[in-house]
């Protein structure tokens, strides 16, 4: 597992109250009971934690954590 994934997982567990056992690369935001407002909030948290900006439009396209980690890594996120 990548360091970026571990960071994303940490944000979801600490800030969004997701159960650690529910988090996996295949999990969708829907599976984790996070809606579009949560996704915008997630993008803000990712920016704080990883120093890269996800636009609202990009956030809307994200479905799974795998998509999210890929996007963050492409943007040069450093965990």
């Amino acid at each position: 597992m990548s360091a970026v994934y571990e960071k994303v997982k940490g944000v979801l567990v600490d800030k969004f109250g997701v159960e650690e056992s529910e988090v996996s690369l295949e999990a969708s935001f829907d599976d984790l009971d996070l809606d579009s407002l949560d996704l915008v909030e997630f993008a803000l948290a990712a920016e704080e934690e990883l120093g890269v900006r996800i636009s609202d439009e990009e956030a809307e396209q994200l479905e799974t954590l795998a998509d999210t980690v890929k996007l963050l890594e492409e943007k040069g996120a450093q965990a």
Partner: peptide, 12 residues
């Protein structure tokens, strides 16, 4: 709130 309503309600 977390104990009584769950983490999602506590946050949102």
């Amino acid at each position: 709130a977390t104990a009584l309503l769950g983490r999602k309600a506590a946050r949102r």
